[in-house]
Amino acid sequence: MFKSSKTVNSAAALLFIVPLAYLIWGAMNSQLGANPVEKVIHVTGNWALNFVLIAITTRTLCSLPHMRRIGWLHQVAGWAAFFYATLHFLAYAVLEHALSIGEMLDDALRHRRIFAGALAYIGLAAAAVMALPVVSHAMGYARFRALHKVVYPAALCGVVHYVWLVKKDLRAPLIYAAAFAALAAYRAVMKFSRRPV
């Protein structure tokens, strides 16, 4: 059902750049609203989380019969998640703290929201390093598979980081929380029922 050709795949993979393109276009045309810095931080954070969830979803789907062909998608989504998480972190580091490491550490240690975000990013960064071909080959497949699951706690920290951001209206972050819970529950059930996931 998924006829994949390399061209189609690469074209689809390039879609991950759309949110960044929107931010660049918006910044150049003053279309990012009254608080463009906040918009950059929120859009990059949102898309980091979106791509993490897309990666987990596609990884789950490709374990179903006849779905192996979308395996490449979860890799693209995984790299895109790390890409946007990095932009999110850089925007925070530069625009919120002017790159002061002391200030950032202080922020992370005093505010659980920032702490959760830091944990999420460290987890994603570790997963990204493992996914480099050199590293994953050196690790061996079994170890890679086990350790790469760090994306699950990282995703959870990302969702919590978002829940703790909002003042009162929890609708949007709770949608992410529900999506993550559904995926995690599905995978847990699959594992329990000893079917290959």
Partner: peptide, 19 residues
């Protein structure tokens, strides 16, 4: 005195880049 979830030490003036 921080908000429990974020710092109140700085602010972003709308129209400015850094805090």
């Amino acid at each position: 005195v921080d908000h429990p979830r974020w710092s109140q030490a700085k602010e972003r003036r709308i129209g400015e880049f850094l805090k």
